[in-house]
Every structure is written in C-alpha cells, then in structure tokens.
Design a protein around this nucleic acid. Structure first.
Lengths: 184, 184
DNA sequence: GCGTTCATGTAAAACGTTACATGATTTG
DNA sequence: CAAATCATGTAACGTTTTACATGAACGC
C-alpha cells in the first residue's frame, strides 16, 4: 500500500513518467525509504490513473506518458500522511547484516565489521560528491525526486551507521563479545 | 531469503523457540533491520530444521520447541555474511512518510514535520529508558535478541532522524518550499 | 474457573521479484 | 547502421500479510 503513496508524493513535486519515477526510486527514495522496480510501478500508475488520483498530463515520444497528480490524488496523499499508523515494517538487509555480524565468533565479527565500515566510508564519499554537485547549482538534478532532501538523509544515515559500527567494534574488543559463547 | 539468516543469527546467539524469536523481532531486530511475523517464522523454522541448519535442542511445556543452531547453520550464516551482495532493498514506511511530507504545501508540511519530530522525541525517550535498564544490569533483557546492540542503533538512528527532520523544517521555512508549486 | 499469556500452526490474498518481451529514438 | 538508452508492459514465481484456528498452562 505504501507504493502508491510514494508515487503520489513524487508526482506531487512535479509531473513524471513511469520511466522517470523508476529512476527516482533507484537513485533517491529507493535507497533510504522505499524500494520498487518498474514492473511494479507501471501497473500501479495505471491503477492510480483509473482511480482518478493521477492523470496523463502529456504524451511524448516512444509512447512516453507524463503523469500529473490530481486534486483527488493530493487529498489522498495528505489523508495518508496525517493519519497516525504507528506500525513499522522495516526491511533493510544492510542493517540486518551489521546486526548479524555481532552474532559471529570474535575474530570473524571484527574482520567483517571492519569491511562494513570501509564500505560505508566509500558510500559516504560518493554521497558527499553528489550533495556538493547539487549545492553548486545543477538545477535539474536538484529537483529529481527528493534529490537534496534524500541526499541529506543519506549523508546523516551513513555517518550514523559508521559511528555505530565503530562503537560495536569497540564493544567486541572490550572483552564482552558473546556472553553465551563461553556459557555453551 | 533474508529471513532465514535473521533467524540463524538470533539462534547463533542463544537457543530460542519460535515464540521467543517472534518477540525478538517485535522488540529489537524488527524495529530497525528486518521485520517478520510468527506466521512466517514457524514454517521457516521447520524448513531450517529439515535442512539441518538448526535442531530442536529442548522440548518444553505447551508444545514448546527450543531450537539451537548447528555447525552447518553457522557455516551457512557466515557464508552469507562474507559474500558481498551490494544490492539494497530498503522498505521503511516511517522514513517514507518523512520524505513525502516535504512534497506537501508549505503550511501542511511544516505542521506534519513538527508532529513527526514530536513523535521521534517520545520514541527516543522510551529507548533511552530501555538502554538504561539494560546497562543497569537486567541480565536477561540484555541477552534477548540483539538487545543492547539494537538499542544503541535505535538511539543513534532516531537521533539522526530527528536532526534531519529539523533540518528539513528549517529548509521549508527558508523560503524554498517547493520550487515547482510556483512554476506550475 | 476465567481471562491472559504461551505456543504453534494453515490457507487465501496481497505484494514484490525475476524472467521474458517488444519496439522507438538517440548517439556515435 | 549498430549499440545504447528510452519506454512500457506481462506472467510465473516467491515472499509477506491477514484472517482463521486450536489448545495448554498460568495467575488471580
């Protein structure tokens, strides 16, 4: 059910085609908030159009259809955002891996945590480059999806992950690796 | 496919029943890394047992079966953690909502962001209480799932979310709400 | 003994991924 | 004119949720 709201939210910012939206998912929103592929996006767009929440605003070359949000669509999105819905449903394999690393034997865990930290350093470097590019003008890129907002989140998120992984590494060093490994 | 590794990871820390694991998912790992319900956990445990990756270590009252990981299970988990698999597949409705808020009209967005920030303040307070409890002894709670490691992640994660939401709020205030609302 | 928590399951429906498919337009 | 990219789709399969189901043990 979240997919439709993600789409409405993106179309609320600016009109876009299914192809555009697929790219936004890949680059921005899909990296941090919600992931979807074109095979799910196209049918959902057709459904949203049938329900009158979005509408074809423009037809382009190669059968391209640019959709815009309707008043009904905006109302639907707003209603969803306002209503509490305190239930989560997190799925993040990257974080899962970091959690599970700490279940391994001490040496293994240390080695794998170090690798994960290195990876997130590289991730951060790439993100910093993207943010700089956006901030130094690049007006088109800035508007794509949730460009700047997403990038800022990514920056803070990966920094947090890295700090946490280092904290976890320190904890393993400090002698309390797996309380139960000994007890077994 | 991630579910089975989440289960193996938890059983690697200490033996547990399907019922225990369901609770760990609700309280710890499911809040930050991977979410699953008992209707998915029980069949998966039976499959893992059939494959020899886990085994019934103890039978208790009310049909309770406590599983322990086998050597094969540990090897399987390790192999998965070592191999790169750089593809993400994030799904986090909470973050999605924060992203989408910025797609709304200025006033609406400000109001909703404030509500979200208040929520995460409360969330943080609860977490801090849990962490304190764990650190002040509470040896059983500390061992459940990824208790302390998960709580620390949660702490840092929610603090980051809150800081980011405030940053986003400031950005909306500073006159650049939705570049395209005007252009249309 | 009554309500709650413990403990495990099944089946249908909804959601999401993978593999397959097609053709138009642009770029070099 | 060949390769890359743009652009949209369908069908089979796998994963996850929702609704339904059952019964044992514990606390009051």
């Amino acid at each position: 059910m979240s997919l439709r709201y993600a789409l409405l939210g993106m179309l609320c910012q600016e009109p876009a085609s299914g192809y555009d939206l697929t790219k936004y998912f890949e680059k921005n929103i899909g990296r941090y908030a919600w992931h979807a592929k074109h095979t799910q996006i196209y049918p959902e767009l057709n459904r949203l159009a049938d329900e009158g929440l979005i509408r074809v605003a423009e037809k382009g070359a190669r059968g391209r259809r640019t959709y815009g949000i309707t008043a009904a669509g905006r109302a639907e999105l707003r209603a969803w955002l306002v209503h509490p819905s305190s239930k989560f449903g997190v799925r993040n394999e990257y974080i899962l891996r970091l959690f599970l690393v700490s279940a391994l034997e001490g040496d293994d865990a240390r080695e794998l945590l170090r690798i994960q930290i290195e990876r997130s350093v590289r991730e951060l470097e790439q993100l910093r480059a993207i943010v700089e590019e956006i901030d130094r003008g690049a007006p088109k890129a800035a508007r794509l999806g949730f460009g700047r907002v997403a990038a800022e989140y990514g920056l803070r998120h990966y920094q947090t992950m890295q700090d946490w992984a280092k904290w976890a590494l320190g904890r393993i060093h400090d002698g309390e690796p797996r309380a139960h490994a000994k007890a077994r």
